[in-house]
Design a protein around this nucleic acid. Structure first.
Lengths: 335, 335
DNA sequence: TTGAAAGCGGTACCAA
DNA sequence: TTGGTACCGCTTTCAA
């Protein structure tokens, strides 16, 4: 025979009260005299009573779970974002239900699973959820927040790095240090954030007098991440003087690809990446890059979740998180 | 008024059967005529019925959740392990409850939370759970598996990379290529896996005729990861010819630290790391390293979980996963 | 094969 | 302040 777990019933009996009282004692919800409260708590501790979250959730129609949708967490930026989110989720007393998706199809399934667990909220860091499903969440009062997604679904809140501002900083840096011919590196299948960065870069250059039609080369790679950057470098014919990269992985790959060709930054070209992953700071790269404030992004994500849980009908909000240029060795100093 | 979610009751009514039948139809558990089964399924689909996992779990005293304990997932090896685990967990129809811990204290709390959710299993990739708590899991028939932990808790299954074999491969490589003076780099507060690697390295060297007391330097850094390696390199007085590193982050940091001093592998020293993280493969590092088979580790972890769920009383098992030497540029070729 | 009913372990309302 | 009780939504005997 194996020990069953202790239930509220057990505690109630031992403390000489009803189950209801036990519930109140533990949730300080509903009135109870300090004395009994104390006694119940004491007994609960003695017996090692632990609330059954399944039962509790069933009742309250809400578990203390927060669903997080991620993808490709072997990408350092993604894993640091997940890191930040897990921290915030736990700090706020929730548990994270993490699902890694490989397709939009899986995203839909995942969202279903989340609702089946009556999660207290959903955080989407990858993919674009079908509106129909999201509106189911909204109907069920489940807050949804997207991170670095295009803020276009009603009822969903968003937290985005200020990609455009970052691109402007990059453009400014490169123009001011005398570049005339520019390059923009991105994946062929770009995320929304990537596209914004590219468009803003182009606009910022043009506003600074660059003839972008002739002097800005868009280098789109079919491969992802490091490999994509590597291939881009290998296939490059004329080397632009100032290059802006949609993300850190591409940037590191590109830099390595150029090094294989005997070229290096900043002497042969300037290179600015995005994301400021730990790797970009390392001695072998020391890449100038735009830092995404992961801690702040995570904090805001949880804040939106909690606020919307309180007032489900409020209009959608988007928080923009400041991005900073971290100056390292792949670009020239301005001074 | 907001739409309540569809329940089994609704499906039952619409299909003209009882709730019990609906349950059977969906769980193909208990007898039911193919005809009704079909009809119920049809209705369920029409209504968009989704099982409430909380209620289901409450009843079966088991949710379809698997708790995963991790730490520092910004370490590339850790995040790729998590990646592998998430994949396996999802493939097997479970959902992952992921908690990142920062102390043994948090580990204990986390384990509690897991049991409160009646998880179907627990995977520990970091820290050492208190035996008392683990035995509670065992009592409640919750399978626990440790990954790369010292296999010493009764009732727990383990999956470990064959660290000793890896260390032997490293020793062999270095000895055969003519090294006479060796170095072993690790953190001061090492994991169990790290210690094993170090001990096995020492033993393997000594078995190959190396006077380890005089010709093997243990370089223990207080800092973790890349930074630790960097500092080790900075403080190094005599440079050993053959260096073995407890993990990839240390190795990359060390290599960079040496480069800052104008030294590089393999001309000034040979360097072999552990983990084969993506970064070690990159052009700027091309580190010889021991590969941990993350996919296999993850597969075995789930296998143990499932097997023990079936036969909870079976004796503890430990699976050892083969480790391979990936030969790159920081060591000499053997041929 | 099917339905009725007793839980699973809490929560919260209502009366006392 | 307390206890009784009706659920929450599903599973699983037990009879029919």
């Amino acid at each position: 025979m194996h020990k069953q777990s202790v239930t509220a019933e057990d505690v109630a009996r031992r403390a000489g009260v009803s189950r209801a009282v036990v519930s109140r004692a533990l949730s300080n919800n509903g009135s109870i005299s300090p004395a009994t409260r104390e006694r119940v708590l004491q007994v609960a501790k003695e017996l090692g009573y632990q609330v059954n979250f399944l039962a509790q959730g069933l009742n309250r129609r809400r578990s203390h779970l927060i669903g997080v949708i991620v993808s490709r967490i072997d990408d350092p930026f993604r894993s640091s974002l997940l890191d930040g989110l897990l921290g915030e989720i736990q700090r706020n007393g929730f548990q994270a239900l993490v699902t890694e998706i490989r397709s939009e199809q899986e995203l839909a399934e995942t969202l279903r699973h989340f609702t089946q667990f009556r999660v207290s909220g959903v955080i989407v860091t990858s993919g674009k959820p079908p509106e129909a499903l999201v509106s189911e969440c909204v109907q069920q009062q489940i807050p949804v927040v997207g991170i670095n997604r295009q803020p276009d679904i009603p009822g969903v809140d968003y937290v985005c790095s200020d990609n455009a501002a970052g691109a402007i900083l990059a453009a400014e840096q490169l123009v001011k240090t005398g570049c005339r011919r520019f390059g923009w590196i991105n994946n062929h299948h770009s995320t929304w954030a990537g596209r914004i960065r590219g468009e803003a870069f182009r606009l910022a250059l043009s506003e600074r007098g660059v003839d972008v039609d002739n002097n800005l080369a868009a280098l789109l790679s079919s491969a992802e991440g490091y490999e994509g950057g590597l291939q881009t470098a290998a296939g490059l014919e004329v080397i632009p003087q100032g290059i802006f990269c949609a993300n850190a992985q591409l940037a590191c790959g590109f830099l390595d690809g150029m090094r294989q060709r005997g070229k290096d930054a900043p002497q042969d070209f300037q290179l600015i990446g995005f994301d400021n992953t730990p790797q970009t700071a390392q001695y072998s790269y020391r890449l100038t890059t735009l830092n995404q404030d992961v801690a702040e992004i995570s904090r805001l994500a949880l804040m939106h979740l909690l606020e919307r849980a309180r007032t489900p009908l409020q209009p959608s909000r988007t928080s923009w998180v400041k991005v900073d240029l971290i100056h390292r060795q792949t670009s020239f100093s301005l001074t």
